Simulated scan of single mutants.
Amino acid sequence: MRGEKVLPDFCAALWPEEQTPENLINCSECGLNKHGSRMIWGEGNPDAPIMILLDNPGAREDRENKPFICGTRQTLQQAVHQVGLSVDDLFVTYVLKRKPTRSYDKDKTRQICMNHLNQQLKSKQPQLMVCLGNIAVQSFFQNSEAEVKLLRGKIHMINGLQTTVAYHPLAVRRRPNLWPVFLEDWKLAADHYFHSE
């Protein structure tokens, strides 16, 4: 994006992936297994106090199958680094555990895949949930009309979890004027976490 700050090398890193549970690697319930993308259970620290929810995994490998940092992860890493959080504080997961590559029944698929997220929440019990983008917000808040712009800037209690929301990193990359707002929302998350320790 124009005027984008360069991410320091020490935080532009491939965060470790958490292995998908053996019994779910070949999950075919939602049909995304036919899209040819692999299942991504999550990345970062599996025992982290802060769980980040995105809509679906971005690209992991380039055309030569070499791992790389996609724009979503780069922007996310830049923001969390600037507010004093590290990979040890964070676990990133997704509403859909596979990247869709063609059209699909969005509502039905998200509903099915939320079962995986509920399983993760039960086992991980994070202190704070951060939903990035309207799809993550609508799925987690179970409200198809929920919007980041109306919910950001405060802590909500959702499903028994303290939850905050922010714009999707790709939206921030497309609209650089959102960067200060994105940073503000991450500062709220970091301050809330540091003060609750």
Score class of each variant (00 low, 15 high):
Met1Glu: 09
Arg2Ile: 15
Glu4Arg: 12
Glu4Asn: 10
Glu4Leu: 09
Leu7Ala: 09
Leu7Lys: 01
Pro8Arg: 06
Pro8Phe: 05
Pro8Lys: 06
Asp9Gln: 10
Gln19Val: 13
Glu22Gln: 14
Leu24Gln: 10
Ile25Gly: 08
Ser28Asp: 15
Cys30Thr: 03
Leu32Gln: 06
Asn33Arg: 07
Asn33Ser: 11
Gly36Arg: 06
Arg38Pro: 08
Met39Tyr: 11
Ile40Asn: 02
Ile40Cys: 08
Ile40Gly: 03
Glu43Ile: 06
Asn45Ala: 07
Pro46Val: 04
Asp47Lys: 08
Ala48Asn: 02
Met51Gly: 05
Ile52Asp: 07
Asn56Tyr: 13
Pro57Gln: 02
Gly58Val: 01
Ala59Trp: 12
Arg60Tyr: 07
Arg60Gly: 14
Glu61His: 14
Arg63Gln: 10
Asn65Trp: 08
Pro67Arg: 05
Thr72Leu: 06
Thr72Gln: 01
Gln74Glu: 15
Gln74Met: 11
Thr75Glu: 05
Leu76Asn: 03
Val80Glu: 00
His81Cys: 12
Gly84Cys: 07
Leu85Glu: 02
Leu85Arg: 02
Ser86Asn: 08
Val87Ala: 14
Asp88Phe: 06
Leu90Ile: 02
Leu90Cys: 03
Phe91Trp: 09
Phe91Met: 02
Val92Trp: 01
Thr93Arg: 04
Thr93Ile: 02
Tyr94Gly: 03
Tyr94Arg: 03
Val95Asn: 02
Pro100Cys: 06
Pro100Arg: 03
Ser103Leu: 07
Ser103Thr: 07
Asp107Phe: 09
Asp107Ser: 13
Lys108Leu: 12
Lys108Glu: 11
Thr109Gly: 09
Thr109Ser: 11
Thr109Cys: 13
Cys113Arg: 06
Cys113Tyr: 00
Cys113Trp: 01
Asn115Leu: 15
Asn115Ser: 15
Leu117Glu: 07
Asn118Cys: 15
Gln119His: 14
Gln120Val: 05
Pro126Leu: 04
Cys131Asn: 02
Cys131Gln: 02
Leu132Val: 01
Gly133Ile: 01
Gln138Pro: 04
Phe141Pro: 03
Ser144Val: 13
Glu147Thr: 13
Val148Met: 08
Leu150Gly: 09
Ile155Ser: 10
Met157Tyr: 11
Met157Arg: 14
Ile158Ser: 10
Ile158Cys: 14
Asn159Tyr: 10
Gly160Thr: 03
Thr163Lys: 00
Thr163Asp: 08
Arg173Gln: 12
Arg173Asp: 03
Pro176Asn: 09
Pro176Tyr: 03
Pro180Arg: 06
Phe182Glu: 08
Leu188Ile: 05
Leu188Asn: 03
His192Lys: 13
His192Gln: 13
Tyr193Ile: 05
Phe194Met: 11
His195Arg: 08
